[in-house]
């Protein structure tokens, strides 16, 4: 088998699995015994109050988008289309600030190291772009194909993608932890000496202790792993487009949701980065180093534990 064939087959399997996961999250088509309750418990790990406006706005916004979409389809009312796009932006922001969508990993990661705001923006962009592309690929290739040729496979296949994605997250967490246990190039540590002459990172940023180097590099692997699982909202928007012959318009809606999601996730990531930076600036060098080390271990541990819980629930 050639390398190209292998890649093609692997892509097809991945798309089928991606289609399956979107399908299988719907409780109307998945028996309750297969619902990953352990994973759901791991997603927040706390008994927090969800602000009422989130629930009510999301209900009203999706309803508004649906009505406006009908107006565009039936009456060619492009003003309604523009309004629908604006609603999609707001919906994306409201939707993404809920649990899920990898925010727990982003919070853990950016709390654990001194990153630049750009890293948070790039992380958020990658998660949302990959999520949208994943949804498009799923619906256009995997999802439609599955309905036609292998409906039964969709019930089993989500586990493949879940296990793959959560395994990647656990591997990322372990790798993240190891980078903090071992001395290495281009990384920040307090409490041990190393040769800065060998480092190739940028020192022009604003900080007042020698061992906390802001990095502009986003956690690419984490972002890809998180974005890989398509949001059911994007997939149903696209399926709606296929069923109603409105794919280009629904692609626009997915883009709106994605941009809104990017804005919300960026705000959270940049807030974490700025919050950590402000705290570190106010601590003495020794305290900052100690706090940084603790945060790194706690954050890496959190990523591993949550990833493992999700993985165990999926296996």
């Amino acid at each position: 088998m050639t390398r190209r064939t292998t890649i093609f087959l692997a892509s097809v399997i991945l798309l089928l699995a991606l289609g399956a996961i979107a399908y299988a999250q719907n409780p109307f088509v998945r028996p309750p015994s297969e619902q990953p309750s352990v994973a759901q418990g791991a997603r927040t790990g706390m008994r927090v109050a969800v602000p009422r406006f989130i629930r009510e706005w999301s209900h009203a916004l999706q309803s508004g988008i649906a009505d406006l979409t009908t107006a565009v389809q039936d009456d060619r009312d492009w003003g309604a289309g523009l309004t629908a796009f604006v609603l999609a932006l707001v919906f994306g922001a409201v939707h993404i600030i809920g649990p899920g969508h990898g925010k727990v990993f982003a919070l853990s990661y950016f709390a654990s190291r001194d990153a630049r705001p750009g890293a948070g923006l790039v992380y958020s962009a990658i998660v949302n772009i990959v999520d949208s592309l994943s949804a498009i690929a799923v619906v256009m290739l995997g999802y439609v194909l599955l309905v036609a040729v292998a409906p039964a496979f969709r019930v089993e296949a989500p586990r493949i993608l879940e296990i793959t994605s959560y395994s990647l997250i656990v591997v990322f967490g372990i790798a993240h932890l190891i980078t903090h246990l071992l001395p290495h190039r281009g990384h920040n540590h307090g409490g041990h000496a190393h040769d800065h002459a060998s480092h190739d990172h940028d020192h022009d940023h604003d900080h007042d202790h020698a061992h906390d180097h802001a990095t502009g590099k986003p956690p690419m692997m984490l972002a890809l792993s998180v974005g890989l699982i398509p949001c059911p909202v994007s997939t149903v928007l696209l399926v709606y487009g296929i069923v109603h012959g409105a794919v280009p318009f629904m692609l626009l809606m997915v883009a709106g949701v994605s941009i809104g999601g990017f804005a919300a996730m960026s705000a959270i990531s940049v807030a974490v980065i700025a919050g950590r930076h402000q705290v570190m600036r106010r601590l003495s060098t020794g305290a900052a180093a100690a706090a940084s080390t603790i945060l790194e271990f706690v954050a890496s541990g959190a990523i591993i534990v949550v990833g493992l819980l999700l993985l165990l629930a999926a296996v």
Binding site: Q25, N26, T44, M46, V48, A49, V50, P51, I54, R55, S58, H59, Q62, S63, V94, H95, I97, G98, P99, G100, K103, V104, L107, A111, C231, P232, V233, V236, A267, I268, A271, V272, A274, G275, Q278, V279, R282
Partner: peptide, 23 residues
């Protein structure tokens, strides 16, 4: 206050929980 704003947002972020995908 500059310190409080990002910390407050960070603390509130997980609490702003909503995840319905069907209405």
């Amino acid at each position: 206050y500059r310190l409080l704003v990002p910390i407050a947002i960070v603390l509130l972020a997980p609490a702003i929980g909503a995840h319905p995908h069907m209405w």
